[in-house]
Design a protein around this nucleic acid. Structure first.
Lengths: 243, 243
DNA sequence: CGGAGTCTTGAGCCCGATCAACCGTGGTGG
DNA sequence: CCACCACGGTTGATCGGGCTCAAGACTCCG
């Protein structure tokens, strides 16, 4: 651990979602932060079927949750960005029913093992946060499922681009109207339930219509208005209710 | 409230999932059980976009969670059966991003409004249950998403039938090898992301192969072995970890 | 310079969508 | 009692969005 980030100086604290954390809670978190782990792009963070590991928070970078079938078909369930929990399901159940893999270089905050119950007993506000983050992730999966089940390829793609664009902007990752975009077209295909080839063609079509510009791992020129119209995107409230 | 079910006599308590509830917790639940609500089949329980309502538990009957697009396309997210939470997302966020509708006649246990926080503060074990039930539902949605994104129509249908069969059996709803099955083919189509017509044809094909018999709202003759082989169904652990 | 990973393009086909009837059953009201 | 209708299921015909197979191009890197 060369220079572990202090929870007190955690860059994520600036986000509105983490507004209501008290100093005591922060001290608890700091005390139980067991390690800070950095991984290269494309590293497995959690294997499908792996038994309960630590609970992590994604501090930096992108990752994704996925499931695979025996013959190799893969479905990406959702994209993880800084502030997201990693491994809640694996903690709550005997084993993870999904895998997690990093897209970029990634930094994780690892919390001490077997402390989950202690959180519920001693820090109800943090326990509430766990529940809330879990429910938020479920809502994301709900949205993806609606897309994959009922939207056309162009609609799905618009949706995804817009969704990631808004999330990244909320995290301050958009600079000069551009975003470093680490998903390959294979990732996009597996997220949207499309084939690789068809994803490519749809992408080109949207690019041709100047709805956005995605090339060389950079997303820019996002025409939010037209993308919203095409995809039927709805802005969702991210605010946590006050107690 | 003619004859509200006492929580102490709740039929759901026999389920392994609810093993570890203590008498104090039970008393708390009983105290905050505000009402017992019964609805006819096809009743809306929660509207899309509706603001925070009560938190319910499904005591009896089937329901489903869904999202719709402005033009009417609908995606069913998951099927609710006795013991499932209803409206956790609506409680945690300002408004529900999905609707809920009953499939059969349904009985709901309603808990007092604005007590959610009290649960976290005073009954950590119950708070843990909320989190756990939420995570369990997310896992269900994950599974549906994998099906809709990456499985063929026949695989999806086998999966769904087998999944509902196992869940219902675990709840003691299978009698004499048969199950009252309240989903119409339209519901099945919206669950699997298929068209109405194609669902019908796929259903007939599986029926012809004697994989199961589904007619007149009754599911029977379920050939578990062959359905498992066809769909790649994996049995999942439902046990809650002990503290 | 070769190889791996990513992206692109073409051709052909098929799974599943769409459109359009039609059937059977149960409820409802004149 | 019957005409009517709503609803769920069934069937046929046709279409097309997206899949598959196959090859080639570009980039980065050792």
């Amino acid at each position: 651990l060369p220079h572990p980030t202090s929870c007190f100086a955690c860059p994520l604290r600036a986000l509105p979602v983490f507004d209501s954390i008290t100093p005591e809670e922060l001290a608890f978190i700091q005390e139980h932060k067991a390690a800070e782990i950095t991984l290269r792009p494309g590293s497995p963070i959690l294997h499908e079927g792996q038994e309960a590991e630590r609970l992590y928070t994604l501090l930096f970078g992108w990752a994704f949750r996925f499931k695979t079938l025996p013959d190799g078909r893969r479905q990406i369930l959702n994209i993880l960005m800084p502030g997201d929990l990693v491994g809640l399901q694996a903690k709550l159940f005997k084993e993870a029913s999904h895998g997690i893999e990093s897209l970029t270089a990634v930094t994780l905050c690892a919390f001490a093992r077997k402390r989950t119950w202690e959180v519920f007993r001693n820090f109800p506000a943090l326990a509430f946060d766990l529940t809330w983050l879990g429910a938020r992730e479920e809502r994301l999966v709900d949205d993806v499922l609606l897309s994959v089940g009922r939207r056309s390829a162009a609609e799905r793609l618009s949706m995804l681009v817009l969704h990631l664009w808004y999330r990244a902007r909320g995290l301050g990752m958009v600079q000069d109207g551009a975003l470093v975009f680490p998903l390959t077209q294979a990732h996009i295909a597996d997220t949207l339930g499309l084939s690789y080839v068809h994803t490519n063609r749809t992408l080109q079509e949207l690019r041709r219509q100047r709805l956005f510009d995605l090339s060389n791992g950079l997303l820019a020129g996002v025409d939010e208005t037209r993308l919203r119209a095409l995809s039927g995107y709805e802005v969702v409230e991210e605010l946590r209710p006050l107690f």
